[in-house]
Design a protein around this nucleic acid. Structure first.
Lengths: 281, 281
DNA sequence: GGTGTCCATACCGCGGGGGTATGGCACCAG
DNA sequence: CTGGTGCCATACCCCCGCGGTATGGACACC
């Protein structure tokens, strides 16, 4: 099976419509129809049932869609990483990605410790919006990532745990609830005049709800000082909490685990070294 | 990048020789040279340095070899799984692979429990030689596997832990050492007249050493009864130990963890159901 | 039954993958 | 230094197969 065939198949499966898929692929409809039919012949499997409105996946087609997407991502990742190591011009280098804003002290410690290693290579740090680290690791734009359980999807990666912490509620300093010694998540999310902000989805859109749309951390902290919102965050943010804000521990929020993750089996020596120093921190 | 190009590249990289790679691929040398050159142009990266003896990988080439192999495996897995679900003829089914011989009671419990589930599908159990479960999971011949830490390479899989057990030494009943209440691994492996058997590598070859070559469990137990060998195994084998054999606990052997593993992101409903019942055992 | 909306088939042109023959280069034996 | 050997690259050719256009055929809806 060629990646071209797979790309065609995925396009048709996603559109449920050969014509639209062809348009998306920048080609005419008949060759696409033929390519799909040929793929079906070669696999010995019907991938679609043809309906008057378009096409629908068979169960074999659903399997190929699931598996094919990850296969395509793997090919794409191979290509990207190859281009990158070539661009580095023989001198090895590693791209590390992390969420913009948080755990800067941990990152600094890691980068310092690694730079002191005898066989250290250059580390490019790429800060990306929350939730995008795993994507970048999967498609080859990054080699290692710092990410967070249970928020990020870690499936398919190897990883080491770097830190475990509780979560706290950040709210305006003067607010009545700020005097409480602790709170539950249910209580925190139902404070009448303090809605929790909404986090953007992977595609940049926002879920519906009452809270403000969260853009960056300083903006939301500003909103909290103004008495307009509250937010649940890992307790390490205490370090960056200045006046005007109060912190209340949450008793039943899930623990947040900071991990360093990397794609399995692509253990370049540089990545291995970085992971080794990370796990010694 | 097309999978054909990747296959060509991997062949050349593995042979370090364009001519031999071409032979292996069943084609002539010049088109292969050209395909590689074209791949290099398209990637904008030199993958090989040409030497008078053949070719050598550049660092970019090493990256592509590492990544490309897993990408090819992913494509192959997609193809196999699609063929399989098509062959199942609409009626979903799952292939579970496990090491031949061991933990049969756990498997039986799992299969019984799963069969009782409302949405259970047919489960094909494939027993494969030790160490091959992970390979079958990676190349799509299986959907779920029962395997064992730290022996199997679990990287890249999602998993749940099913059981944790200590290891024991099995030796002839009459042997002097069989009276000891416990032993260390060092002691167990240096009993003068009882060599530990050698396990086959993934390719079927055997490492060098004094012990007998292990073929199957009954054969090795026979050898132990004859006073010719001893073996270290998880303690669950006590159940299948009959007369003529003695069991001595090991104090410092690593724990053996039995896990159920599955490829990430290919979570078909059937696999998900099987895993769910497994983790409830 | 006409019409619109799909996907499939028929047919054609051309790019590119694969073949053979040969060149160019480095190393080695003498 | 020179002929020989063992590589990979280039030159040239053929033909398969991919992609294009035109059209057929099935189905739903009015």
């Amino acid at each position: 099976m060629e990646t071209r065939e797979l790309r065609y198949f995925v396009a048709v499966a996603e559109e449920s419509h050969v014509g639209r898929a062809a348009e998306r692929l920048g080609m005419a409809q008949p060759p696409l129809s033929r390519a799909i039919a040929q793929l079906e012949r070669r696999l010995g499997a019907d991938l679609f049932v043809r309906t008057p409105r378009g096409v629908e996946l068979t169960s074999a087609g659903e399997t190929l869609l699931r598996e094919g997407r990850t296969a395509l991502a793997a090919v794409e990742a191979a290509e990207r990483r190859t281009r990158r190591t070539a661009a580095a011009g023989g001198r090895a280098s590693v791209v590390l990605t992390a969420k913009a804003g948080a755990q800067s002290e941990l990152m600094a410690k890691l980068l310092d410790a690694y730079a002191a290693e005898p066989d250290a290579v250059e580390v490019d740090v790429v800060l990306s919006p929350p939730g995008h680290q795993a994507v970048m690791l999967r498609d080859g734009r990054a080699d290692v990532a710092i990410l967070h359980r249970p928020f990020d999807d870690l499936s398919g990666f190897d990883m080491d745990v770097l830190a475990v912490e509780e979560q706290v509620l950040i709210l305006p300093a003067g607010h009545a609830a700020s005097a409480r010694p602790s709170m539950t998540v249910a209580e925190a999310s139902s404070i009448p005049d303090l809605p929790l902000p909404r986090w953007p989805n992977l595609d940049g859109s926002y879920p519906d709800g009452p809270g403000p749309e969260l853009r960056d951390m300083t903006q939301i902290l500003q909103l909290i000082r103004l008495g307009r919102a509250a937010i649940v965050l890992p307790e390490s943010v205490r370090a960056s909490v200045r006046e005007g804000l109060a912190v209340v521990p949450l008793t039943d929020a899930p623990q947040v685990t900071t991990v360093i993750a990397w794609p399995p089996h692509s253990t370049s020596p540089a990545v291995a070294g970085l992971v080794r120093t990370a796990s010694r921190l």
